[in-house]
């Protein structure tokens, strides 16, 4: 088994999930509460990665972070290295690719929090941030957990975007799914089967545990 690919995939998925948590929560709160009339454009953009072929997304991200783009040039100037075919470039692409898998469950969870609880918090003197941390987050965390698990699992299994942005550099951008592809190409079906099975079981377990936990959490809070 290609342990360095597994390690790389886990690292990428963890960092992508954390990045999406930091960026996704404010975005999801905005989507849940904003009354801006053009909000649907933002919603459409957030959802776009679900319907786009990974190659299309990968292609534009590649252009967007490439040496001729402002982002790529700024990164080059600061670090002296290029973003494409690096782990950092892969992280950016993965975060974009998994954005809807984080933001949609986040938004759904946050918007189910009763508006009156938020108003009650305001009337008790608590500001926006305190209300978010002490009321909205505790009441919507099952949904936020779902979003995190989905982002993690989705990043773990991504292929097309990784290939477009990362190439296939061992230890740098060769993730587990690329490794399986290489093994199949080399007609090493035994190794491919082993790695695929490991990925399959891992993904299944993570999802099963998450949904199992959620059921129990909801049961504790709202006996039906």
């Amino acid at each position: 088994m290609d342990w360095s690919a597994i390690e790389l995939s886990l690292r990428l998925s963890t960092l992508t999930t954390l990045l999406l948590l930091i960026l996704g929560l404010p975005l999801a709160s905005w989507l849940a509460y904003s009354r801006w009339r053009w909000k649907f454009f933002v919603e459409a953009v957030v959802t776009l990665p679900i319907v786009l072929p990974p190659t299309v997304l990968g292609f534009y991200v590649l252009i967007g972070i490439g040496p001729h783009s402002p982002i790529g040039q700024a990164y080059q100037a600061i670090t002296g290295r290029g973003l494409p075919f690096s782990f950092q470039g892969l992280l950016i692409a993965s975060a974009l690719y998994s954005l809807p898998f984080a933001v949609q469950p986040f938004t759904a969870a946050i918007s189910t929090v009763d508006q009156r609880l938020i108003e009650a918090s305001w009337c008790l003197g608590r500001g926006w941030l305190a209300t978010f941390l002490r009321v909205i987050l505790p009441l919507s965390w099952p949904g936020i957990l779902t979003g995190m698990v989905l982002s993690f699992a989705h990043t773990l299994g991504e292929f097309g975007v990784v290939l477009m942005i990362g190439g296939d550099l061992a230890g740098v951008t060769r993730t587990i799914s690329i490794s399986i592809f290489d093994q199949v190409q080399a007609l090493d079906y035994g190794a491919a089967n082993l790695t695929s099975l490991a990925l399959l079981l891992f993904s299944f377990l993570v999802l099963a545990i998450t949904y199992g936990l959620q059921r129990r959490v909801f049961a504790v809070w709202s006996p039906r």
Binding site: L117, E119, A120, W122, G125, P138, W221
Partner: peptide
């Protein structure tokens, strides 16, 4: 804003924090 008015508001269905 409501936070700085120092008022008490009792909601019709009480709006208690369930958590």
């Amino acid at each position: 804003p409501p936070q700085r008015r120092r008022i008490g508001f009792l909601f019709q269905d009480y709006a208690l924090f369930s958590h």
